[in-house]
Amino acid sequence: MGNGTSIGRVRGLGPSHEGAHHWLLQRTTAAGNLVVIIWLLASFLMLGDFSYANVSAWLAQPIAAVPMVLLSISLFWHARLGLQVVIEDYMVDAGTKFALITALNLVAIGGAAFAIFSVATLAFGVQG
């Protein structure tokens, strides 16, 4: 907070100290989700055969592995932003709020990392 321009005197003074960035990212990842989820549903419907050989061969291709990696990033990011708002709305105690959002960050990044690593394992042909 500065004491110069009128915007500088009020910037960051809301209860969460920020907001527009979160709001915009929520919309950006929502648009991304729309694209990758339509891709995922169409892919599942066209796969037909859900045997291990068929599904793993499909996901090992770059044309499927890359959108699956992007899907993992977009979905986990959007979920992280959404659940953050749910926690902020219902958790009154500042300590509980901080702990839950910290846990949410760890789980979201961990889940996305695990998903991306699994796709990479298949794509680079080192699965057990």
Partner: peptide, 12 residues
């Protein structure tokens, strides 16, 4: 989703 991808990476 994580179970789906993780099980694929872990084998048949």
């Amino acid at each position: 989703l994580v179970w789906f991808l993780g099980s694929l990476a872990s084998g048949p």
